[in-house]
Design a protein around this nucleic acid. Structure first.
Lengths: 143, 143
DNA sequence: CTACAAGTTAAAGTTAACTTTAAGTCAACA
DNA sequence: TGTTGACTTAAAGTTAACTTTAACTTGTAG
């Protein structure tokens, strides 16, 4: 099957202008054109689009994604480089998830804090509280 | 204790210009100044700075952070609103973490794929492979 | 008292990743 | 064959979140 820019845009839930922008930035070197100049996406291109989305969603800049794709086009001599890009991006994601978890822990404290404040009708409940009664995991936070 | 903008910047590992920018955007309405106009951060301000960092790291735009802080300054009548901001931000973080995990799963596949390709010396190993030999969790991905 | 590092401001500059605009072309259907 | 919706391009515009610059002031150490 062959798809146009609009069809792929719908499938991937991004704007057609974004796909054209990616093409202009060199992210889609595998793309072929019809005789009239229309972009023709093939089924085998979808794998590339998915890894592009993956790298983009994990915060890799366009230029680095381009480098990864260029490696892919170059063939088997770049397997080592592609592997280390993937492994380093895995570490980026792991670090991000760890940070997100820490932020979520703080938001859990704030959720508890404002839920209690709502019950009490005032944030003043907190300083009036016996520190022992603050649930253990929340004791490290400032109000 | 009282701290200057530079001291706080170092403590929080952000640029002094960023703190001044936040102040200009109205994120630090609690900030007091010396008679000479120097910003004076107090220990009790650190809690605000931490929640600002938390909301920022979870992707909340500056203007929405300002709204949250403004609610805080307004006092106990805004407890409900602050609680729902926190709860909605928790949902944002949970969604982000879920997406990150999905991206990590795909990167795990790519790690496996390029590790195998490295062993084989070629990416062609993949199409030559019996689909049964692809580890179950990886079968949903395109190469 | 002087030097000087670090503070202050307003305004302009930067960067990434799109998005919009304008002018035009392609292709599928009636 | 004409209409129409989707495609094309280059270039300009947008947005958020800073960062830099330039000119000036503050406050501390010697």
């Amino acid at each position: 099957m062959i798809y146009t820019v609009g069809e792929i845009a719908k499938q991937m839930d991004i704007a057609p202008s974004t796909l054209r922008y990616y093409d202009k930035e060199g992210l889609l070197p595998f793309l072929e054109r019809s005789s009239g100049g229309i972009r023709m996406f093939k089924d085998e291109d979808l794998g590339w689009l998915e890894i592009i989305e993956c790298l983009k969603k994990t915060g890799m800049p366009i230029k680095e994604i381009k480098h990864f794709i260029d490696c892919g086009m170059a063939g088997d001599e770049t397997i080592n480089e592609r592997l280390s890009i993937i492994q380093s991006q895995k570490n980026v994601v792991i670090a991000k998830m760890k940070e997100m978890q820490e932020m979520l822990d703080m938001l859990d404290f704030k959720d508890w804090y404002y839920t209690k404040a709502k019950e009490a009708g005032t944030c003043a409940f907190y300083n009036a509280m016996d520190p022992e009664d603050i649930p253990q995991p929340f004791r490290k936070y400032k109000d």
